[in-house]
Design a protein around this nucleic acid. Structure first.
Lengths: 239, 239
DNA sequence: CGTGTTATTGAACAGAATCAAACAGTGTGG
DNA sequence: CCACACTGTTTGATTCTGTTCAATAACACG
């Protein structure tokens, strides 16, 4: 049923169990068009997604129109972990997205019966938590330009996941599939401030833009200096 | 060896295994004085703590002196989960703290052999992640006064954990064991702004102060309106 | 009771938000 | 193929929230 092998299947390599077989037999490849919601707020958390392709924005919405994007999810990332009956966040496809959709119950059963898989899963959860902590630091402590620099490093490290060869230190090209508003809502800024920060980095020749949705890092050292050497760097390893 | 039963032991209730017995036989009650570090940055993540008493601040420090407090941990909360060899954060006792200290390896072994326990542990991790997401929303989207209101709700829900009777909706008393600097570093503000926000809430008769480290909520509805009805509320259940 | 520390308050300032306009890119239809 | 509308981005002027700098006030402790 599953055409391509997802990250979850990769994680299960080596382990063998009836529950695992069942889980993967239940997995369905689903496609989402740009703007479509993979999960909506308040929805029952019945499914778990393993992203194969495209970019998803995970956001929390306030009732007064405010929106905070919690993460941008790409290939090899998961979506749908929740401690509650209903999902508090909104997951939106920013590009066409392909993801494997698993019934949550089947996943739970595997986690309860296949401890080695459960351990790997726990490590993934911990990484996600650490990434959220990085985000808190960025939003709580850094200035606008620093946040944008930090964001570029964040995307770079996300991009590295795609790469079958593994993360490359030297890669300087960065795709920005999201709009300026998405970036602003991720960094706790406004579109104007994000735009100004990009312009400022362009002016000081730290980055250049091909078009408004992809840029090239000219001075990676400077970006690291601004965005934080400690965050999203290679020493963290891969999820 | 363990004098009091911690939250981890509570979670293990019902399960039985040699690894669990070993884990609990290895747990040691430790005491920390105010200002002492339970874990320091870069330290090997060899221990796992189950807080019994007191308050711990978990913080990430930048090399330029900036500091972001990621959470305040009290009774029934855990400390020490990490996906890496070395711990990236600094855990400091804000008050005298009592905690049960477990060797990480023993915990890992339990998690790898006792799936029911592993599942509960995963739920706890997920809750911590959701709490971090609340924090991101607060810092990214809310104004100074709103952040402080949100912080009071956060403390209130933390306090409820202590309570053997369970969370009480009506409780209005809030202990502030941390300094204004700690609050500021948690909310991404300065001490002055935090102080002004408190004064503003005092002036509009939403809260009163007994002394600077404990306050009373007069108008809980208003605090919820400012700080976000969705966050840190009772519907989340207990960890 | 003085001394050091933490908290509050005030005045000036700065960085980001808001308001407003221009600009670029895309798609549509004449 | 070009005029036009539409959306998203950039840039500019102004306002405002929160910071910085500075002084004072309240505690905590020897």
């Amino acid at each position: 049923m599953i055409v391509r092998k997802g990250h979850l299947a990769e994680m299960a390599e080596g382990a063998e169990s009836a529950e695992l077989d069942f889980l993967f037999s239940e997995g369905r490849e689903r496609h989402f068009v740009q703007g479509e919601h993979l999960i909506t707020e308040g929805e029952r958390t019945d499914y778990f997604y393993d992203v194969l392709d495209g970019t998803v924005a995970l956001a929390r919405n306030g009732r007064d129109g405010r929106r905070q994007i919690l993460s941008f999810l790409g290939a090899r990332q998961f979506l749908g972990a929740s401690s509650t009956e209903r999902y508090p966040n909104l997951a939106t496809a920013l590009t066409p997205v392909t993801a494997i959709c698993y019934p949550r119950a089947a996943l739970e059963r595997v986690l309860e019966t296949t401890p080695s898989f459960g351990s790997k899963f726990r490590v993934v959860l911990t990484r996600i938590l650490e990434s959220s902590h990085d985000h808190v630091y960025t939003i709580g402590q850094r200035s606008a330009v620093e946040r944008v620099a930090s964001f570029l490093l964040y995307l770079r490290s996300n991009q590295a996941r795609f790469d079958p060869v593994g993360p490359r230190d030297k890669s300087t090209h960065i795709e920005l599939p999201m709009t300026r508003l998405d970036i602003a809502d991720f960094l706790g800024l406004t579109i104007e401030t994000v735009s100004r920060a990009f312009s400022s980095l362009k002016r000081s020749e730290v980055i250049t833009f091909k078009d408004s949705h992809s840029c090239e890092i000219i001075n990676l050292e400077k970006i690291r200096e601004l965005g934080g050497r400690e965050d999203f760097t290679e020493h963290r390893g891969r999820a």
